[in-house]
Design a protein around this nucleic acid. Structure first.
Length: 479
RNA sequence: GCCGAGGUGGCAGAAUGGUUAAUGCGACGGACUGCAGAUCCGUUUCCUGGGGGUUCGAUUCCCUCCCUCGGCUCCA
């Protein structure tokens, strides 16, 4: 297991990562509430934690990555009421769309996506314990609240002091609470809305307790890593700490807390409630997944990132093409000739450089997931490969060495995952035949014929490019 | 008001108590090409919010001020 460091937002310092029971790593990230389409802000967080899980696996850990699905809350209910839908069916549908988007993005590292409503027994059990221990109280209408004053270390995660909070800064005060900072853990049922029976009357779970009930069941009283966007630190994560630690008596709930910076649009947080949203699927349709991943990972994960719909991904696409170019050239040669292809060997010096670079990439990432630096190093490798000139003369073994750093990028960053749709399908049989005919035409100087073939392919969305290593083709995805 | 994260070139954004402050985008020049495109190579010496302090040396460490964003019980 490789040693690495993470910035822990609870202690506000960079710490060596030590799992409770290595090599297992219990990892929990707050997912989105599926009441409408995911936006590129959500995706930033998900791509980042995807890289964390990928890196852990590469480094010999065995992460168990849980991402919760808050499939029932006020917003889901409100949205369902608008469309005359069943709330749980709506959430289920939205969640499936979200999963499909994650699949497109290459986010496949999550082991389990539990639905909150599948954990109602655990939630009820936790509510009961909290009441028994005197941390929670029932109001007259049948709701149950957590009494923050009973938990002395409340605020330790976010650095907030109870007396400095500004109650009602954004939301209406709730008269059923003993104190404004108390929060609901069981909501009394509203007629017509989904509800469950409980000792305190029919109702449904409050938001914060869903997570602690799920993590208690799935990851234990104490686990390794909790992640999410910085906007969740307070109150949500603070509430999780209060609930879990007072219910179990075990602290800390999570040994490391990682919070990703937000994506900003026109200087403010991208959020569905504000309506300033770039929908993930639309962006994926226009630019494809790789430029988006590169765009996210090109920044330190904790910094705010400004999203400019007109520019950010246009730039990222250029940058991605430049990064991927050497990798594509090598991969295509290997595909054609296989690993056994004959040819010149690269010098031992270059081979050693490739190996050293892979080691360095791991080292860079082990410093609080410095993806930006790793990417900068990959650009450097692209220049190195470029200096070698035409790659067609090298052996399969040499090409595989040159590909090493890119293989790392595929595995850990999820970049350059070769996309069969770019050169696949029935066209992969036909195009090479046509290009061979075109090559013959060019060789005999019949450029009119050569251009006719190229134009005909272009008319079908296939871009043909002549280069030092021969002629390449791919579907034109530039829109 | 309180808590937290940020402020670096034309733009996006790294890093370090010390020679030319990474990388990318853009721009400019060149190579390659039948042409086109893509790619590659080179150049882009004038960039670290303001003010103090520590130091031989500060973008980095300390103090202070200013600005931006997030949170203060809906939020990735």
């Amino acid at each position: 297991m490789r040693r690495f460091h993470v910035y822990d937002s609870r202690t506000r310092e960079t710490r060596v990562f030590a799992p409770i029971t290595p090599p297992r790593v219990g990892m929990y990230v707050c997912g989105m509430t599926p009441y409408s389409a995911a936006h590129v802000g959500h995706a930033r967080t998900m791509v980042f934690f995807d890289v964390v899980a990928r890196a852990l696996r590469r480094w010999g850990y065995r992460p168990f990555y849980v991402q919760n699905v808050t499939n029932l809350d006020d917003k889901v209910i409100a949205r369902a009421a608008d469309s005359g839908d069943d709330p749980l069916a709506l959430a289920d549908r939205q969640f499936r769309d979200y999963l499909a988007s994650m699949e497109r993005l290459g986010v496949r590292s999550v082991n389990l996506y539990p639905y909150a409503t599948d954990y109602v027994p655990e939630i009820l059990a936790q509510v009961r314990v909290l009441i028994e221990k005197g941390f929670a109280y029932r109001s007259d209408d049948g709701s149950v609240y957590f009494e923050v004053a009973k938990f002395p270390t409340y605020g330790s995660l976010s650095g907030q002091r109870r007396e400095e909070l500004r109650p009602g800064a954004r939301l209406e005060l709730d008269p059923r609470k003993r104190a404004p900072e108390d929060f609901v853990i069981w909501k009394a049922a509203t007629p017509g809305e989904p509800s469950w029976e409980s000792p305190w009357g029919p109702g449904r779970p409050g938001w914060h307790i869903e997570d602690t009930a799920m993590t208690g069941r799935l990851l234990g009283d104490r686990y390794d890593l909790h992640g999410g966007g910085v906007d969740l630190i307070f109150p949500h994560h603070e509430a999780e700490v209060a609930l879990a630690e007072s219910a179990t008596g075990v602290a800390p709930l999570a040994n490391y807390w990682m919070h990703g910076g937000l994506l900003l649009l026109e200087g403010t947080k991208m959020s569905k409630s504000l309506g300033n949203v770039a929908v993930l699927d639309a962006v994926l349709d226009e630019y494809g997944p790789m430029p988006l991943r590169l765009y996210y990972l090109n920044v330190s994960y904790r910094s705010p990132l400004e999203f400019d719909p007109a520019r950010s991904l246009v730039e990222a696409r250029e940058a991605y093409d430049r990064l991927a170019q050497p990798a594509q050239r090598i991969a295509e040669l290997l595909e054609r000739g296989g690993a056994d292809r004959e040819g010149e060997e690269i010098s031992e010096g270059v081979e050693a450089e490739a190996d050293d670079l892979v080691e360095r990439l791991d080292t860079l990432l082990a410093d609080d997931f410095a993806t930006r630096e790793a990417i900068a190093a990959l650009y450097g490798w692209g220049r190195r490969v470029g200096e070698l000139g035409s790659l067609a003369r090298y052996s399969g073994a040499s090409l595989e060495s040159l590909y090493g750093p890119y293989e790392w990028a595929e595995e850990v960053l999820g970049l350059f995952v070769r996309d069969a749709s770019r050169t696949g399908g029935a066209w992969s049989e036909i195009v090479p035949v046509l290009l061979e005919a075109r090559a013959r035409a060019r060789a005999r100087g019949d450029f009119a014929e050569a251009d006719r073939i190229r134009d005909a392919l272009a008319a079908r969305g296939i871009r043909v490019q002549d280069g030092a290593d021969g002629t390449r083709w791919e579907f034109d995805t530039s829109g």
